[in-house]
Design a protein around this nucleic acid. Structure first.
Lengths: 210, 210, 210, 210
DNA sequence: AATGAATGAGAATTCATTCAT
DNA sequence: AATGAATGAATTCTCATTCAT
């Protein structure tokens, strides 16, 4: 039994699982120490593995950081894709699900938010970070704008500008996430959700309640 | 003679001016290289001064960073204080001035935005950074809420919740700043201002135009 | 069936063949990357085998390097032994064959020359390397001196000092090899051979032509 | 006194002197440990300085090594230049001086020879090393060939081929240096000089004695 | 006998800080 | 007050070696 347990812990893990394990440790460490202070030693210790393991699986620290950002981006995006392509949902339901998702436990996990904003803070000096997210950001904006446009016609909202609403909602969500990260005692997830809903209610009063 | 020569040299600059010179260099360098990559050498080179100068004036790198954050915070805050305490402005005018200020050249200078978000990204791991801003953030929120409350009564906006509006506006501004920082080609300052105004117009339609 | 499959696999190769395969890869890699930069990974990759194989067959990197030097030394020596002990050759023919051999394709293979000089360069700090060659160097010198002494009496060359000629020829050959290694475009094998012959012609003009 | 000594040892040394100090330590360390085993720590310890000093003065280990090779090359070359351009010497005297120089204490210092051959051994894989020496090697060969050509006409040596003699002498000198490096007990400097002279005597018997 | 993921000691390099000038 | 060469702790990365499979 002991042997089996041992072999399970060190050898029989797939390369992909080991990479994920390291990415998880990286997320935790960035949240704890900050992007400018995390060391490889922090990460490997957190993962319970040896010093050299990161270079074995990711070649360099920089590549590990990039893969970590990509992991979080992909995770966020895939959640939204499922919602957008769900044939059972009406337009309004999709929007509601989108917002619910934006303020769900998975997304507003403070460790992940810390990673998000750590990377945003470095974006100006490291365009690579932006390029990782650029595509999905554009995609999500396009999907959301489309949903707003559909709801505009479905609900007869002549004054709504779907693009403006999308930009405004997106910025609002970003700002609320920042609030959730930096003032966890000030703003609760539920409140953040309510704030987002409050804005949507100003645009589509027949479909959403503040 | 020696004194004259002396005063003409670099030594003639006051300690305060030297500190500001270094803070300015720090802002530029954080924007260019990112908080996690700036070195003291970058900063002193940018300032055209010698290696050891930062330790002379700020004791340590960490203290220089803190003073830099404080400098930007104070600068932002003092601009808003002037607006809030301007006896010549009506409530609506103060709000307009506030928003105009939030998206003015001084504030949305990309170097300064980069510094802002660099620090936000480290906030979770370095509460000191947050503590520098906490007071002024609370103050500004309090002022803004008060303005919204006044306008609510002045304008007969029964449904407006001043606190909610303040939280929403603040988050929206944060999110728009992030957009201005990371996608400078996507969102222009003027548009960001319009988005903010669009939100205020939903709350106070008689006073603001989308 | 399993046995057949087995024998067809990599395991069917004898340990000795595996060792030679690794030594060949080592020669190639030292030539390509330099003794100070070759890694075990380079060598095993070049050999198309797995990481751990060297330690299995040679215990350590150092031992592989020593065996590689020994391989090249033995190869060189055995060629000369054949010539020296060839009963069909006259003294002069043996000397000619020796020189021809010294500048033949087998010996002046640039990969092998690179290995030779890589080891010579480390000799002062690693006397082991020297000790591997010391015996055969002494043997060859002894044989060559003997040949020169025989030719001196056979040809009536009163002024020739066989030992001096041997030292001079040996140094000359070393120097020409170095030239062939470092300036392959400057000195061609045929020219190097001519230079060596030119020297021998000064000592034994009746037997060798410049 | 102690203070003066201290300041002299650490601060008042010029950058150039510090670089030379490090190069000298590098020569000693390469000789002692071999090019493939020297570490920066060996070098800085040998120089009695701190870890970071090499990167301060040479940026990287590789550059230090290159500068070390260049130092030895320049040193050798400048000695020969002086001889070649000495107006007081006849052609034969210049050649004699050249050879005397080639086997003088300065040149056949075993530490420096070890460095020479350490680099030659890496030449195939690092063309940079060769490029550092290429120019001066060509220059020296050109000078020496010219001297041999002059002596040929001065002394009426119809059969001498100056270029061939130059190639042969140069290779011989290289080979003798290698001997001096690897078998210090076998070949003495004086003997090596004699061997070189022996060869020249075969070409210019009226001017040189074996 | 062979593999290759994992290890961890050791190397080069970086950089905040110090201090003689 | 200012300089900048020097320091040395800390960090990333390398790579020979091990060992479960």
């Amino acid at each position: 039994m002991a042997a089996a347990k041992h072999s399970a812990s060190k050898r029989s893990v797939s390369a992909q699982a080991r990479r994920k394990q390291l990415i998880m440790a990286t997320i935790k460490c960035i949240a704890q120490k900050g992007l400018s202070a995390v060391t490889m030693a922090d990460i490997t210790t957190e993962a319970g593995l040896s010093q050299g393991i990161v270079n074995l699986h990711f070649q360099s620290k920089e590549k590990l950081l990039i893969e970590t950002l990509r992991y979080i981006s992909d995770e966020y995006r895939s959640g939204l894709d499922n919602i957008f392509h769900d044939p059972k949902k009406t337009t309004a339901e999709k929007i509601t699900a989108h917002i619910r998702y934006d303020f769900s436990r998975t997304i507003i996990d403070r460790n992940k938010l810390a990673v998000w904003f750590a990377f945003w803070g470095e974006t100006k000096s490291r365009p690579t970070y932006l390029s990782i997210c650029a595509d999905y950001i554009a995609d999500i904006a396009s999907n959301l704008t489309q949903l707003f446009a559909q709801l505009k016609t479905e609900g007869n909202y002549a004054n709504v500008d779907p693009e403006l609403t999308c930009v405004c909602y997106t910025a609002l969500a970003d700002g609320l996430w920042l609030d959730l990260l930096v003032t966890p005692k000030g703003l609760k997830p539920k409140q953040a959700y309510n704030v987002a809903m409050h804005y949507l209610a100003t645009q589509f009063p027949d479909h959403f309640q503040a």
